[in-house]
């Protein structure tokens, strides 16, 4: 039984990772198609780093992702705080539902509606429109990451802070914000990844002259696959591996510190 489950697990991971590894393997292949492996080369990586258009798009994508997730985290945190504060149950449920509807509605619908919205308001399509729409679809994610943390916080913590003389503002700065920081961080990273790999919404609102990675890859793939894309995928894959690894190390450090203070107590 145990053996069977292990085999199953390995199979699942193969199915999940094989396409990516296949893609990356061909980024080192001489030649221009993925039909046959022609021998090792760094050529596609050289092409990639010599392609100013591609590098500009990577920079734009990262800029949009960072900026939008920062702003969305700020707004989302305030939103979560305000939903949590709402004492009337009906109002709170309505607010939360409105938040969740944005999460579950299809990207295509959101993208199309943003396109109509921006053209009606005569907002030029480009960096601004992409940034605004990314902020908009990231806010609900941030709210959902922070709310459980707020619910976990005992209301008596705030009473205790007030009891010791803290004003509402001091309660927010010294008690609430430190308590929900893990939620805020999680929200920020989720928003960042959503922004990085969003295609559908971005596709509607990019316009001419501005593009993000996912949109660019899509349009290049339509003209026949170019192994430069494979090289890019390889770089992105390593990048996300490093991100995950860093996050893991950070967590480990926290856990170890906690464990050490626990041992000291005994």
């Amino acid at each position: 039984m145990k053996k069977l489950s292990r085999v199953y697990l390995v199979l699942v991971f193969i199915v999940l990772y094989l396409p990516i590894l296949y893609l990356i393997a061909y980024s080192f292949s001489q030649g221009t198609t993925m039909t046959n492996y022609h021998g090792f080369t760094w050529q596609h990586y050289r092409d990639l780093f010599a392609d100013p258009r591609m590098l500009a798009i990577v920079a734009d994508t990262l800029l949009v992702a960072l900026l939008s997730s920062l702003i969305a985290t700020l707004i989302g945190t305030l939103g979560a705080l305000s939903i949590h504060r709402t004492s009337k149950r009906v109002t709170r449920d309505v607010l939360l539902s409105l938040n969740n509807i944005l999460m579950v509605s299809p990207d295509v619908i959101i993208g199309a509606s943003f396109l109509i919205f921006f053209t009606t308001l005569k907002v030029p399509l480009g960096f601004t429109s992409v940034l605004l729409s990314h902020i908009a679809f990231e806010i609900p994610i941030v709210v959902l990451m922070i709310l459980p943390r707020l619910r976990e916080m005992s209301p008596s913590l705030l009473c205790a802070a007030a009891d010791l003389g803290a004003t509402t503002r001091q309660q927010l700065n010294k008690i609430i914000i430190p308590f929900i920081t893990p939620g805020i961080m999680a929200g920020f990273f989720m928003a960042l990844t959503y922004s990085l790999d969003d295609f559908a919404v971005t596709f509607f609102v990019t316009g001419n002259g501005f593009s993000t990675l996912s949109v660019e890859i899509y349009s290049r793939a339509r003209q026949g696959i170019n192994l430069e894309i494979n090289a890019l995928s390889g770089v992105m894959f390593i990048f996300s591996l490093l991100l995950v690894g860093g996050y893991y190390l950070l967590q480990q450090g926290n856990a170890k510190r906690r464990q050490r203070s626990q041992e000291a107590a005994q």
């Binding site: 005992s154 008596s156 913590l157 009473c159 205790a160 802070a161 007030a162 009891d163 010791l164 003389g165 803290a166 004003t167 010294k174 008690i175 430190p178 308590f179």
Partner: peptide
């Protein structure tokens, strides 16, 4: 008078210690 300006202090049932 709000809680933060009253000269009384409270020990709460769940202690309400600040975990951070």
């Amino acid at each position: 008078l709000p809680a933060n300006r009253r000269n009384v202090n409270t020990v709460f049932q769940d202690y309400a210690l600040f975990p951070n």
